[in-house]
Simulated scan of single mutants.
Amino acid sequence: MAGAPILFDRSLLALHRARAERLAIPGSDFLLARTIDDLMDRLSTVNRHFEQAVDIGDLSPTLAAALAAHGQGGTVRRVRPDENEALPLEPGSVDLAVSALSFQWINDLPGLLAQIKRALKPDGLLLATLVGGDTLQELRAVLTEAESDIRGGAAPRVAPFADVRDIGALLQRAGFALPVADTDRFTVRYDSMFHLMRDLRAMGATNALTARDPRPLTRAILARAATLYAERYADADGRVRTTFELIALSGWAPHESQQKPLKPGSAKMRLADALEAARKEREGS
């Protein structure tokens, strides 16, 4: 990951995740549960059996358990990037790589995707989901405004999440065949901004940016942000809205059996000829 900007403090992220395990607030894992259900649905559309599967990430053993129970895989193991974001995978050693909500915490995502592509056997599959750019846009807006109002400036408090178009380009750059990236954007409602922040702590998803302000948010800033949130994003019943966006991506390690686009000039019929033939058929000539 030489030259990649260090956006996230991985040691702090580990502390946040350890705290999340201790909190264990019921229902706060809804985002992970939704992601795993979707990944298993996507896997079900692939008519393949994968002998060697890996769960890449360190959020929870839930994904690996779901893979093992799914029936399309043989051996399932969990791996995580080390402190340098290197994966303990040999080239051409796995058939299936799956990840749920871990990629958004990677400093060098292009490098990680390249490692995964090398680790996949020919015609091996990557399925992953990460958090997209519209996530927590309401919280980002009110925290920035409240801190600016009270301190005269604002530090980054919410991580910069990926754009679906960028993810598609990264898959191509890493050398994946048949790359696909699509998005699931939805709204979750909370009793207040503070209930949202409680869930984020329970997910281990609080601020781990290296550029974070070491000063904590004061009560005055949080109170101002909560007021702005309620004013701008509350429904008639007083509950507030929060946007989440999940980006699902897939790509295959190249193999000669895969469908390939036609080379320029290799078409059997010119477009003009095809259109003329279709016109004659409609006219019965």
Rank of each mutant, 00 (worst) to 15 (best):
M1H: 06
P5D: 14
I6L: 15
L7V: 07
F8P: 00
R10I: 00
S11G: 06
L13K: 10
R22Y: 08
P26F: 15
G27A: 13
S28D: 13
F30E: 13
L32G: 02
A33F: 02
L43P: 02
T45S: 14
N47A: 15
Q52K: 07
A53E: 12
D55A: 07
D55F: 07
D55H: 11
L59F: 08
T62R: 09
T62K: 14
L63Y: 11
A68S: 12
H70G: 11
Q72D: 14
Q72W: 15
G73C: 14
T75Q: 08
R78W: 15
V79A: 12
D82F: 14
E85V: 03
L87N: 10
P88I: 12
P91T: 14
V94H: 02
V94M: 12
S99A: 09
S99V: 08
N107L: 08
G111A: 09
Q115F: 06
I116V: 12
A119Y: 05
L120A: 02
P122I: 14
L125C: 04
L130A: 08
G132E: 07
T135K: 03
R140T: 08
V142N: 01
L143P: 04
E145F: 00
E147I: 12
S148E: 13
S148F: 13
D149N: 03
I150K: 05
G152K: 05
G152C: 11
V158I: 15
P160R: 10
D163C: 01
I167N: 00
A169W: 14
L170P: 00
L171G: 03
G175M: 15
F176N: 04
L178A: 09
V180P: 01
T183I: 06
V188K: 01
D191C: 10
M193G: 00
F194P: 00
R198G: 02
L200E: 08
R201Q: 11
A202V: 03
G204H: 04
A205R: 01
T206L: 04
A208G: 08
A211C: 07
A211K: 09
P216E: 04
P216D: 11
T218N: 00
R219K: 11
A220S: 06
I221M: 09
A223E: 06
L228N: 03
L228M: 11
A230W: 04
A234R: 01
D237A: 03
T243D: 06
I247C: 01
A248Q: 07
A248Y: 13
W252I: 04
L262N: 09
G265H: 13
S266C: 07
M269H: 10
M269V: 11
L271C: 00
D273M: 04
D273L: 10
E281W: 04
E281L: 14
